[in-house]
């Protein structure tokens, strides 16, 4: 017989959001940022994606922060996979904190070998142990604050399959999805708010 003794809920640290912001989506141009970092692709074959595009509106409030090193890893991964004509994907690893409301921070990523095509991506089953290795290196009480993946030239948006993943796994108010398109030079963030998918602003910090 299985008996649940207690649930220990994650305690959110009360702390102001990161101050050393180097990029803020909505106020600055992400294409320029990606170009400066060298993570764009000049020209490739166009890919016809038949995935249904979920329409979203941009929320005003900023409550999603990405550490610069993590952002570079995401852009580098999406760029290198795009050069092979494949989508990239990984987990956003970080923490959830409180300051006039909940906000989430991405400190790092965890990814592994992928079953990927130009229009689809998931982890190889046998690759999860690579992710476990990465998680074991983390010294704080991490939270998977979301996931990232790339699109190859059909722009940054949430498709119906992306939305299914968001609803199944990342449905808390602090969870986010980052969608990077190195070809159209976009990186957008999305979140489920009252079960509706919204685009959200994000900030990259040092």
């Amino acid at each position: 017989m299985i008996k649940i003794d207690e649930e220990i809920r994650k305690k959110y640290k009360i702390q102001p959001p990161p101050q050393n912001i180097i990029f803020e989506y909505g106020k600055e141009d992400i294409e320029k940022y990606m170009q400066e970092k060298g993570f764009i692709i000049e020209s490739v074959h166009s890919i016809n994606c038949l995935e249904e595009k979920i329409e979203t509106v941009l929320q005003e409030e900023l409550d999603f922060y990405i550490k610069e090193e993590a952002c570079e890893k995401i852009l580098e991964h999406c760029h290198s996979m795009a050069l092979k004509g494949k989508e990239a994907m990984g987990f956003l690893i970080g923490d959830v904190k409180y300051w006039e409301g909940l906000y989430s921070i991405v400190y790092d990523i965890a990814t592994a070998s992928l079953d990927a095509s130009p229009v689809y991506v998931r982890f190889r089953r046998e690759a999860f142990e690579e992710i476990f290795d990465k998680l074991d290196e983390i010294s704080y009480e991490y939270v998977m604050v979301g996931w990232y993946h790339s699109h190859l030239g059909y722009s940054s948006f949430m498709s119906s399959i992306d939305l299914d993943t968001q609803k199944k796994y990342f449905n808390q108010p602090f969870h986010a999805a980052l969608v990077v398109d190195p070809i159209t030079r976009e990186m957008k963030a999305f979140r489920l708010i009252e079960n509706e998918c919204r685009e959200i602003p994000y900030a990259i910090f040092k």
Partner: peptide, 13 residues
């Protein structure tokens, strides 16, 4: 639960 950081302590056989 990796998605939230919440934990459940339980007794099993």
């Amino acid at each position: 639960d990796a998605e939230t950081g919440n934990r459940i302590n339980m007794e099993v056989e």
